[in-house]
Design a protein around this nucleic acid. Sequence first.
DNA 1: TAGATTGTTAATCGATTAACAATC
DNA 2: TAGATTGTTAATCGATTAACAATC
Lengths: 211, 211
Amino acid sequence: MKKDDGSISMNVVRRLPKYHRFLRELKASSVVKISSKELSEITGFTASQIRQDLNTFGGFGKQGYGYDVNKLYKQISKILGLNVRHKSIIVGAGHLGQAIANYSGFREYFLDMKGIFDIDHDVIGRKVNDMTVMDENYIKAFIEENSITVAIICTPRSVAADLAEKLIDYGIKGIWNFAPVNLEERDGVSIENVSLAESLYVLSFLMNKNE
Amino acid sequence: MKKDDGSISMNVVRRLPKYHRFLRELKASSVVKISSKELSEITGFTASQIRQDLNTFGGFGKQGYGYDVNKLYKQISKILGLNVRHKSIIVGAGHLGQAIANYSGFREYFLDMKGIFDIDHDVIGRKVNDMTVMDENYIKAFIEENSITVAIICTPRSVAADLAEKLIDYGIKGIWNFAPVNLEERDGVSIENVSLAESLYVLSFLMNKNE
DNA sequence: TAGATTGTTAATCGATTAACAATC
DNA sequence: TAGATTGTTAATCGATTAACAATC
C-alpha cells in the first residue's frame, strides 16, 4: 500500500522478504508460474493482499495467467535492493558478533563483509571466520578508507548509542543494531533494530496467555 | 486493544516489551510517577495510545496523578509473564546457539536454561558457558525427565521443521525459532519466529529507498 | 472465443488519535 | 476546591478484504 506521500507502509515492507523467500523456494522447485490464489495458500496471506502488495510496486502479473515466478522473484529482489552489495563491518566481536560473522547466509546478498572490530585486547587479533578482529580505535580510518556503508552493532547496550553517533559521523549509511536500544532513523541513515529480548518477552506473553 | 473475542492485537503485544524496558529505565533512575504525556515523550508513542494500550489490561493509573512507575513496571512484567521461569533448552550448538547460551541477559527472566544439544560429535561434550553440549539423541529423555517447556531452535533451516514437530511431541510448549522457516503456532504451543535474514532485507530495502 | 486471473476500485474492518467526562 | 490526568467513548485514519471490470 503506497501512501499519498509516496512512502510505503512498513507492513508491506516487512512482508516483502517473506515473498522473496517463498518465491525462492518455488524457483528451486522449478515452479514456473503462480497465481495469487496459489501464493495465498503457501504464504497464508490473502490473494487480495498479495495482489495489493505487489501492485504497490508495479503490475508484475498477467491477467488470466498469474505471475512468472522467476520474473517476480527478480523484481522483488530488486525492490529489496538485494542486487546491490554494501561494504560492511561488525562492531563488537563477542559471541553474537562472531555468530553473525560466521553465518554465510547473511553474505549471500547485501552484505559485503569487510571487517570486524572490538575494544577488548584479548579479542583483537583473533581470527573470526575469514576476518581478523581489529582494534576499534582504527574504525574511523577503516570506514573512510574502504568506503564502508553498513555497520552491524553487536556491542553491549551501554556503548551502542554513542557508537552509532560516531559511525554515522564517519559516513555509515545503514545500521543493523543488535544492542538493546532503539536507535532512531535520521535523514540519509537507515536503521534496523533487532531486539532479541523483546522477541523473547513476546514468547513469554504468548505462553503466559496460553495456560 | 482487546478484540471482541478477548484476544489482544499483536500490535499491542509487541509494544509491551518496549513499555517494560522504558519503565525499567525510569525505575533505575528513581522516577516515581509518570504521566502518559511524559511516557509519550520517552517512547515516541502518543499519550492516547499508551492509555489505550494499558487499559487493555486494566486501569493502572490514577486520575489527576498519572502512573506509579514501580507498580506499572510490575504489572507489565506480570502481563508479559516474566515472573514465571520456564525450563529451557537450546537445540543447535553452532555459533548462534552458543551466543544465546552465553548472553546472560536472556536468563534474567523467563528462561531457566537447562541444557544445550547438537548432533555433531565434534561439538558434543564441549563446554558452552555453564553447560555441556549433549547428544541430540537424548533430547526426548531429557525433556521428559526435566519437564522442559521451552526450546530455542538454532539449527540449520533444513532440519528445523521436523525438529519442531518432535519437540512438540515430547512436550515442548514454547519455541523461540531462529531457523529461517516460519513455524506455525498450534493449540497449546506458542511460537516466536526470529527471522534475521528478513530483518536484514528490510535494512536493504530502506537503504535502497534512501538513495 | 471462453476461462482465468490480474489490477484496481469500493467496502469493511481494525487500529490509532482526539475529545471529554469522571475523578483523584 | 481547582488542576491535572486518567479511563473511555467517538472520530479518524489506514490496512485488509471483497468485488468486479479489464484483459491476457
